[in-house]
Design a protein around this nucleic acid. Structure first.
Length: 693
RNA sequence: GGGCGGUUAGCUCAGUGGUUAGAGCGCUUCCUUCACAAGGAAGAGACCACAGGUUCAAAUCCUGUACCGCCCACCA
């Protein structure tokens, strides 16, 4: 006899164990495959609301697809998350008073692996509590031997194609993580700061030009001044020489299209070493790259400033300029300051030798795929984010100066600078410069996202698995559309000749009820595991699905989760009613008016749910069921069974049985549990989706 | 600066040209032997952000404004 109240805690763990053996791809009955990609969580991560939403929604679709007869391929995995993981382990070392440099590269990497073995699987265990149904016998990791092989192979293929090159140029650098970063790995934050107007005297005259800058300390590395060629005001200065204050370097006044005449005075100080734009201008005009800020964000190569932190140097420069009356004015402005997306340290732009991937052709592939609809992005307005990025794309800085990651298959000569060989094995050839064979493998590793970009095919290790390309769907958060999705698309087309998936579903971002970002550090995060403890996984699934829309954000409201538990209890008690009353009801042929009404309502619900799930309107599907079950079935039909009735008990039974089936993708634990309680032997998970009754 | 979302009940949201604008939570009143008080019945609560326009008819279409969020840009 069932108790009067449903207690998810007592059933969820046991049920999950029953499912486990049947989650393996081979154990599923379907004929055709339906293939989904899991966004592999960071190995350092812990389950958050975004993971929960994404995987729950995908699980609903996949459980439905399984029931309508597909074999589901959904492979779980972990991303080694280079910088993030390295930071975590470095923090741990710090507690022991050590830095990674005290250990050295090899020992440090060993330490990261130890960390991974100990904590790395936690997030996937947490995923299981959501009740999701991937094949857990196939957990993939971006540092698996076979995966690393693919990463190296990919780099070499691009290199052979001539798209990988090494260059000394201005790049984004995080002084805390001590590595280069791509444009997508920096975040801008609006900050109030000062725009300083500095006078640059012209050579042999008393005239001067005024330059506006927010970063006066970079002037130490100026190698020219530039104005827009269409800017009438400055035409007479073209080709003249200005004198860089403090340093007294001569600066040629050049013209370049990319100078914005509307910013400041319309005169730009060109610092090719410490600004990406200036680097590009510098390259066009063959300007010298003068590095004055180093990897520690300290000044180098300038007398009297050597070793000063960039902020102290700024202060010192401003003081000198004021003394010499070269500071015209300072103006308060709001502007965007770049920060590291991993540790939130202010980014420095510094020149460095890095490896780049030419993006022009790859970007074309990516554009074509979506334009020609071999990949659908849904909702379609998110295509804009994708195309915007591809339109203005810069070459991708692939190398990172950290230690945790896949090492570049690149070998440098011990004797000669800038002599290298791209190869997976130690090269046997002689160095062209010194004619010796003294190669060492670079310590540089790949951008984490370079390896993530290969995910859809690099996880397919065996001959059989290799058939699982391309996938049907991937569910994603909108903030990684470019970081991950776009890069998977062009990588897939380049290496596999086909896009890696057909459909990209962009789900909303989970915010707090007040519309704030959920963040641990701000204390605004809500832990899905706490909600599971409190209400059960099905309630969490119900609540999140209930709230899901096609908008960009979802303001999380716990009352929906609470309501999920109430609904679970309602279903539970309806089943209790059936178990108690069905044996007492009189068998009969034919149907009462109420019978006919509820059959009609069930069939309409079934039809609507199918339509809504297939068009990814999960919330709509769930609401339809909720309304049917609670307000039509419980409030009216079941009530009518209590009165003197000629309802046919088989109708009661059919509605109960089929309702459990169609609710299953949404609330799998509850329904699987009740399925057994009503006497069904097989797993509900493996049942077929019902036809109209 | 350009673009994309959003603004509907106290809260979170549906509603995509056609009767008196809906749901869940919250609120009010009533109802506990007989599946469930995590329940049932009844009810209050919305000039649909603002200003114009198109239409027989507008929350819905168009134009503009305000505020919130996001993306992009040569953010020096």
């Amino acid at each position: 006899m069932l108790k009067t109240t449903y207690n998810p805690k007592e059933v969820e763990e046991k049920i999950y164990k029953k499912w486990l053996p049947y989650l393996k791809v081979e154990k599923q009955k379907g004929k055709e495959y339906f293939i989904a990609l899991m966004a592999p969580p960071n190995v350092t991560g812990s389950l958050h609301m975004g993971h929960a939403l994404q995987n729950i929604l995908l699980d609903i679709l996949l459980r439905y697809k399984r029931m309508i007869g597909y074999k589901i391929v959904w492979l779980p995995g972990l991303d080694h998350a280079g910088i993030a993981t390295q930071n975590v382990v470095e923090k741990e070392l710090k507690k022991e008073g050590l830095t990674r440099f005290d250990l050295g590269r090899e020992k440090f990497i060993k330490r990261v692996w130890q960390w991974k073995e100990k904590y790395g699987g936690i997030i996937l265990e947490q995923f299981k509590r959501l009740g999701i149904s991937p094949d857990w016998t196939r957990i993939k990791f971006t540092m698996d031997k076979k995966y690393v092989d693919w990463v190296e192979k990919a780099f070499i293929e691009y290199y052979k194609k001539g798209w990988v090159y090494r260059d000394y140029r201005a790049i984004n650098y995080c002084p805390r993580c001590r590595t280069s970063l791509s444009d997508l790995e920096i975040e801008y934050e609006q900050k109030e700061c000062y725009l300083y107007y500095i006078k640059y005297p012209l050579k042999d005259t008393k005239e001067y030009l005024i330059v506006a800058t927010t970063r006066p300390e970079t002037m130490l590395g100026d190698s020219a001044l530039a104005v827009n060629p269409n800017d009438q005001r400055y035409q007479k200065y073209w080709g003249q020489i200005a004198i860089l204050p403090i340093v007294n370097r001569e600066l040629l006044i050049i013209t370049d299209q990319r100078v914005n005449p509307k910013f400041g005075t319309g005169v730009l100080k060109v610092t090719p070493a410490h600004s990406i734009l200036d680097y590009e201008i510098g390259k066009r005009h063959n300007l010298e790259i003068i590095k004055v800020i180093d990897e520690n964000a300290k000044i180098i190569n300038v007398k009297d400033f050597e070793g000063l932190d960039y902020l102290s140097a700024r202060e010192k420069i401003l003081n000198i300029l004021k003394e010499k009356s070269l500071l015209e004015k300072e103006e308060k402005i709001i502007h965007n300051v770049p920060y590291c997306y991993r540790c939130h340290t202010e980014i420095q732009v510094i020149p460095s030798q890095e490896w780049f991937l030419k993006m022009s052709e790859l970007a074309k592939y990516a554009k074509q795929a979506v334009k020609k609809k071999s990949v659908y992005i849904f909702p379609k307005r998110f295509k804009k984010i994708y195309f915007d990025w591809l339109k203005n794309i810069r070459d991708w800085c692939l190398s990172r100066k950290i230690w945790w990651g896949q090492q570049l298959p690149v070998w440098y000569c011990k004797n000669c600078e800038n002599s290298y060989v791209v190869s997976r094995k130690a090269p046997k050839q002689k160095c062209k410069k010194c004619k010796k064979i003294k190669w060492y493998r670079t310590e540089e590793v790949f951008d984490t996202w370079f390896s993530s970009a290969l995910w859809p095919f690099a996880i397919l290790y065996t001959k059989k698995e290799k058939e699982w390309y391309p996938a049907d769907v991937v569910f994603t958060a909108r903030d990684i559309i470019n970081l991950w999705i776009a890069r998977m698309i062009f990588s897939g087309i380049f290496f596999m000749k086909k896009p890696p998936f057909k459909l990209v579903y962009v789900h909303p971002t989970v915010l707090t009820k007040e519309g704030k970002r959920m963040s641990k550090s701000l204390g605004t995060g809500i832990d899905p595991l706490d909600l599971i403890e409190k209400y059960g996984a099905d309630a969490l699934r119900f609540g999140l699905t209930w709230q899901t829309t096609f908008l960009q954000d979802l303001r999380f409201d716990e009352t929906n989760i609470e309501n999920g538990l109430k609904f679970a209890n309602k279903v539970y008690n309806a089943v209790r009613f059936y178990l108690i009353r069905y044996p007492q009801m009189k068998k009969r042929d034919g149907f009462s008016t109420q019978d006919k009404k509820i059959i009609k309502a069930f069939n309409a619900t079934l039809k609507s749910m199918k339509k809504n799930i297939e068009s990814l309107r999960f919330s709509e599907a769930l609401k339809k069921f909720y309304k049917f079950f609670w307000h039509q079935f419980c409030d009216i039909y079941i009530e009518s069974c209590k009165e003197k009735t000629n309802n046919n008990p088989e109708v009661l039974k059919m509605v109960i049985v089929n309702s459990l089936k169609i609710l299953h993708p949404f609330m799998p634990f509850l329904t699987e549990y009740l399925w057994k309680e009503i006497g069904c032997k097989n797993l509900l998970m493996l049942e077929e989706w019902p036809q109209e009754i």
